Computed example of a mutant assay.
Amino acid sequence: MERGSTFLVAPAVTIALLTSISISSAAPSDEILAAAKKEGRLTVMALPRDWCQYGRIIDAFKAKYGLAVDELKPDAASSEELDAIRAARDNGDPEAPDVIDIGLSFAPSAKAEGLMQPYKVSAWATIPGEAKDAEGYWYGDYYGLLAFEVNADRVSRLPTDWADLTAPEYKGSVGISGALGSNHAVQSVIGAGLSLTNGKIDEAAERGLDFFADLNRRGNFVPIVGSTRSVLDGRTPILIRWDYLALADREAHKDKARIEVVWPRTGLVAGIYVQAISAYARHPNAARLWMEHLYSDDGQLALLGGHCNPIRFDSLLREGKVPASLQERLPKLKDEKSRVRPVFPTAKEQDRAREIILKGWDGIVGVTIECMPPEEADPLPMSLNEQPTLLCAAVQ
């Protein structure tokens, strides 16, 4: 991962505890538990209760530890979370989160700016190395996989991989649910490129542009920011989007359309969301306790039940802790050895790909992706965790 090189010192309010409590992978100590209960509450932000089962997770935390939880701005974007920490730093603003849930691309710069403090949860060793900061300033909690959301009432044969999308039968059918330059669009191009290059991330952006140029020449690409509505009404009966959105659509709209979720056989891309503790947390021990709760087996399985892929999934699967009912929702999970392995592009790799895509799209692909009107855009929390200047006004 791309990391800041500056060593960051925690604010004075937490130095005493940081000197007495190791940030190693030890389980939360009685000292942390007692200190958290003395603090009495936790402040979270950008955690909608109907997203990833966060409501259930928050309620379980309150019941287990007896702490109050203040839930600020559930629909806030990653940039707003970081702005709130800056306000706490500059103005002592009490309306600031103790913990944050942000897109991976925001994490390295936030660390470098001194907005985070380190803490390694007891499950640290089971978090993949590419999904965490080595010093414990931030670490992935869950991720989405790019999939094809298909309206099977309008598409007779399901595509199984990126190459299938170029078939003549899919003319005027394939869309993406992100504006050019958004994380979603960038990852879509990367996924197509990985499929064409047999997983070579350094070549993925260029080859992905070639793929979308071919898709456009064939008339298969629909140049709009697709949404649930465009899937249902047939404007984009095949939509490239995060699986947590597609799976939610499959459940929510089963009376309107037969929606199928297909994970490509190659070029399976994961988009990570990371957790961190604010460097200016008013309740730092409650924040550590919250992290232990999120990364516990129960917390990770709760995320999975809410369609968000938990970062510790492989570890839980190996240990036989993933119920069959949850395995059935996801790609090829019953056979651990043959399961499709996702690629986790780092923040640095995403930034490089974004630059290539923004510079090359017009000349190579040659089509403008139009924004949907506000009433048709998906008002979903994860859609807000994007680069704000690159999004359609409808979904900012």
Rank of each mutant, 00 (worst) to 15 (best):
V262D: 02
V150T: 07
A84R: 14
M382N: 06
V274N: 11
D314R: 14
D59V: 02
P374T: 14
E39A: 02
S182R: 06
S122E: 13
W290P: 09
L115I: 09
P323S: 13
Y295V: 03
E80D: 13
R329G: 15
E319N: 15
T228Q: 10
A393E: 15
Y273L: 08
G226C: 06
V367M: 07
E376P: 00
Q350L: 15
P284Q: 10
F211N: 07
L104Q: 08
I277K: 01
C308W: 01
V13K: 04
E31G: 00
L289Y: 06
S177E: 06
R312S: 14
V269C: 05
I23G: 07
K73N: 12
S78A: 12
A68Y: 03
G55F: 02
I23S: 15
K171T: 11
I21A: 06
Q187W: 00
R229Q: 14
K38E: 04
E260C: 05
K332F: 09
E370D: 13
A147P: 01
A77W: 00
L17E: 14
L303G: 04
A252F: 04
V261N: 06
A68I: 00
A112Y: 02
P284L: 06
P48V: 02
D335N: 15
M382T: 11
A192I: 11
S122W: 11
A84W: 02
D378W: 10
Y273S: 09
A134M: 11
A204T: 11
D30F: 04
C371T: 12
P381E: 05
R312V: 14
L104S: 05
P379C: 07
I23K: 13
E376K: 13
T43H: 01
N183F: 01
E71M: 06
S109L: 08
A257K: 06
I58H: 04
Y170R: 01
E375F: 13
E292A: 12
L303K: 06
